[in-house]
Design a protein around this nucleic acid. Structure first.
Lengths: 223, 223
DNA sequence: TTTTGTGAACTAGTTCACAGCT
DNA sequence: AGCTGTGAACTAGTTCACAAAA
């Protein structure tokens, strides 16, 4: 095993690779739970329907984690990838927008474990500010965003606001120094350099999916 | 303008292109709202930070919608793309899993307009079956999935169930004849041929985003 | 032998640049 | 003139296949 050779600018790593790292960690956790101590890239690929060369290439971006002729040590590799993704420390997340989706996300278990914690939920509706979600997250005034982001060292914003408000809220997030935004609002907007945005547009996902649905076999239509 | 030449197997259209079609429709709607009747691919690209050649290539997959020397007629192009995406008829969607996320999705406006309607929300928890969400969607027994899918001509499943239940529920969806699944469960699972799955894994999105966050400048560290 | 790590080959996606139409 | 539609060039991502290591 060799430590990563050079500092490596993460921005040069493709989002495809970064996403797969995350998948690998999850797969490795499954193997660990099954008591598997060791895998070759070939076994790993077969088990999770991936390509073994791709796994090796992805890992090679960050170092040499395997032993030739043997394979990878499951928990060691998991530890390495977890560290590469920065999941070995907790990042604080702010959710902006305390509507149905924002509250559901605040209460969603997946966001509250394994490297992330919901620091606060923000809204601009006086009727919501001060309340708590089902799992006890406070709803705060979005006017205090900047102050709380700094005070609580928040690193990630999750935007769950209506389309009309999204651009203005995104601007506030950037002004507050946030460098990562997970955007659920149905709005495309170009982030300034140094700020990374990931759009999770439910409507577009649904429309894309719909595009591939075979037409209902109208009576007598060819298959 | 020329009609699409050949029947064209939609499966050969890349998901990148399909996703952009959806984006184009949204952009065209914005132009229409601004009273713009006409665009060239160049204007369109500049306005929404896209590449004009890409727009033309994407459109060329489906026909010739422009006029050389002139450009595209906004509402005509929107109408064409809407039809290509099948958004000119309403597709019925079933949401499986009436937890926080499932309920939020059921109540989410974006899923209830422009080509989609929430036909039902399913769960296996007797305590939830029979209740209604805030906006009045009935929670039904997932055991009746197959029957209701057929009866109500449901075409799309949205999976919002816990990871442990996802594989079994996905199997039921396929058995019920559903050909499109939008999966929010943090589980990778390989769909049988003819069934299209789109994974929206919130945890993986967050982890991928976290990967790119520049390290907090530890005292004295180089930029 | 087995399996990694990696250059080379391949495939897919994007952008360029221009012929051809209006 | 201006702009579309499209082959050609380019870029990025994936897979192959093998030399080097254990």
């Amino acid at each position: 095993m060799k430590a990563p050779g050079l500092p490596l600018d993460r921005r040069s790593v493709s989002e495809f690779t970064a996403t797969r790292l995350s998948i690998y960690v999850r797969c490795l956790a499954a193997l660990e739970a099954d008591g598997v101590a060791h895998v070759s890239s070939k076994d790993f690929a077969r088990r999770f329907d991936l390509n073994s060369a791709q796994i090796r290439k992805d890992l090679a971006t960050f170092g040499e984690f395997g032993v030739r002729g043997v394979g990878y040590e499951v928990s060691e590799l998991k530890r390495h990838l977890t560290s590469i993704l920065g999941l070995d420390r907790t990042r604080r997340v702010a959710i902006i927008g305390a509507g149905h989706l924002g509250q559901a996300l605040a209460d969603y278990g997946g966001f509250r474990s394994g490297g992330f914690s919901i620091a606060a939920l923000f809204d601009n509706d006086a009727g919501k500010i001060g309340m708590k979600t089902r799992t006890g997250v406070d709803v705060r005034d979005v006017a205090d965003l900047s102050r709380i982001v700094e005070r609580d060292a928040i690193e990630i914003a999750v935007l769950a606001v209506p389309a009309a408000a999204a651009a203005e809220v995104a601007r506030r997030c950037v002004a507050a120094g946030l460098k990562a935004i997970l955007n659920f609002a149905p709005v495309r907007w170009n982030a300034p350099p140094g700020v990374r945005v990931k759009n999770v547009d439910l409507k577009i996902n649904l429309e894309t999916l719909a595009f591939y649905i075979p037409n209902a076999p109208t009576k007598g239509a060819p298959a």
